[in-house]
Design a protein around this nucleic acid. Structure first.
Length: 421
RNA sequence: GUGGAUGUAGCUCAAUUGGUUAGAGCGCCAGGUUGUGGCCCUGGAGGCCGUGGGUUCAAGUCCCAUCUUCCACCCCA
């Protein structure tokens, strides 16, 4: 038989690893609840036009990374490459602004991008994120960052600094773009081919070019225009207030005038968190303000801010920060029938223990006592309960102390009931 | 999409200049004299040597192609 394997860039998350996912999901659920964000679950695929319009036709994501296909009705559909577009689409579709503003939403789930896999990058990957729609306050920007910071902190990430920048709204952005283009033409000769091209198509992208020569020319230059210097008065004020709010909350950040998010919809402050030791894909979280997106997707003129965090990268970061963390789980009770005749009674005992919410297991392979004891040891059973021929009687073996004694099953159940005392 | 590395039991890895029925450790299963785990001992199952071609008397080993995985570029979370 020919074996079929998981498709390129996808992985199975098996027992033993899935616990770290559950841990993160729990923290995300708890923190978002405390911050009063409601969960939203949107479809995994959407009309292709949604992403083309929101993320931007000229971005790499839309240009070459999307899983796009036609269904039987000849509709062009795309597996979602990120979450924000869908959330905003749903927001507009269900007129959520009518439920009061701001609407604060969070999501978590798989995203799909057809890229070459590497460390911290898969074709199906997972993100959680939040979107706060309807407030232009810098306090809203800071809240989403503080929310993430609390999640990261609870997960044991000690070194948390955020890169911060602002490209501002359309007007600020245009001014900066002109200034940058001007600067780039003065250093044009030294730039790599890609950057020569970007200078015309999307000058902001030149800023995070990784070619060493380009980096030196651009970042080493005193005359490189700084984004914040081209902000409009109100954009600048917003940015300053955000920094103040972050400092006030004790969130550490570093201004980086070359931080540019790759999605077109960002309009104001943008931020990112990078971690050491998780490979070249070091940004685990990124986001920013997108004040035009709701309108561009047919909704009201509502300013918004949000972030997305890569689960796989977050897990790498958590593991480098605190090593393989062992998730504590309640140790099970293992039930053994002393002889075939009491097997049915053993099954009854099994379910009695489970009814108390205590994990319990027994052998379904008809194996020897020795083998069953071995299994009990392997699954780290707390007790082994051997069901005796005498009605109601069992032998309870404490696997830690290697002690055992025979008595009524009901007394054992009492012990289990009181196990949390 | 580009570049580099990689692929042998469930896992981690061996296999002399191409040369018999491809090995080990761990794991798994069964025993070690009469119901009892961990340590120890014995035995067993389990590999189209990633896949497809080619060279050769002979290929896990050499050549080509292809796929996967990994790392980096690109880009993003």
């Amino acid at each position: 038989m020919e074996k079929i394997q998981a498709v390129k860039g996808t992985v199975d998350i098996l027992p033993g690893v899935v616990e770290i996912w559950q841990r993160i999901e729990t923290v995300v659920r708890e923190v978002t609840a405390v911050y009063c964000y409601g969960e939203i679950r949107t479809p995994y695929f959407e009309e292709t036009g949604l992403f083309a319009r929101s993320i931007g036709e000229d971005t790499d994501i839309v240009g070459k990374e999307m899983y796009t296909f036609r269904d039987k009705g000849e509709r062009s559909l795309t597996l979602r490459p990120e979450g924000t577009a869908s959330v905003v689409r749903a927001f507009v579709e269900h007129a959520l602004d009518q439920k009061g503003l701001p609407q604060k939403l969070w999501y978590s789930g798989p995203m799909f991008r057809q890229e070459r896999p590497q460390k911290g990058r898969q074709r199906q990957f997972h993100q959680f994120g939040v979107e706060a729609i309807g407030s232009s306050s810098p306090l809203m920007d800071s809240e989403v960052m503080v929310l993430f910071d609390e999640i990261a902190g609870r997960l044991g990430l000690e070194e948390r600094t955020y890169l911060l920048n602002s490209v501002g709204g359309a007007e600020s952005r245009a001014r900066y773009r002109d200034a940058l283009a001007g600067f780039l033409s003065t250093v044009k000769k030294g730039l790599c081919e890609d950057c020569q091209r970007r200078r015309d198509t999307n000058p902001l992208r030149v800023l995070d070019c990784k070619v060493p020569g380009c980096r030196e020319i651009i970042h080493g230059s005193e005359s490189l225009p700084r984004t914040v210097e081209y902000l409009t008065e109100s954009d600048r004020a917003h940015y300053e207030q955000l920094k103040e709010a972050l400092s006030h909350r004790g969130v550490r950040f570093r201004e980086d005038y070359t931080l540019v998010r790759g999605l077109d919809y960002y309009t104001g402050p943008v931020f990112e968190m990078q971690c050491e030791g998780i490979g070249a894909q070091s940004a685990i979280m990124g986001g920013g303000r997108y004040d035009n997106l709701v309108r561009e997707l047919g909704g009201a003129d509502l300013p918004s801010v949000g972030f997305a965090c890569g689960m796989e990268r977050l897990i790498l970061a958590v593991q480098t920060a605190r090593g393989e963390c062992v998730i504590q789980r309640e140790r099970p009770v293992y039930i053994i029938a002393s002889q075939p005749e009491v097997r049915q009674r053993a099954v009854d005992c099994l379910y009695r223990v489970r009814e108390l919410g205590c994990p319990a297991e027994m052998d379904y392979l008809g194996r020897s006592m020795k083998a069953q004891m071995k299994t009990a040891g392997r699954i780290e059973a707390r007790y082994v309960v051997i069901v005796e021929p005498e009605p109601g009687m069992v032998t309870v073996r404490d696997m830690e102390k290697s002690e055992q004694q025979t008595g009524p099953f009901e007394s054992f159940l009492d012990r289990i009931r009181g196990r949390h005392k």
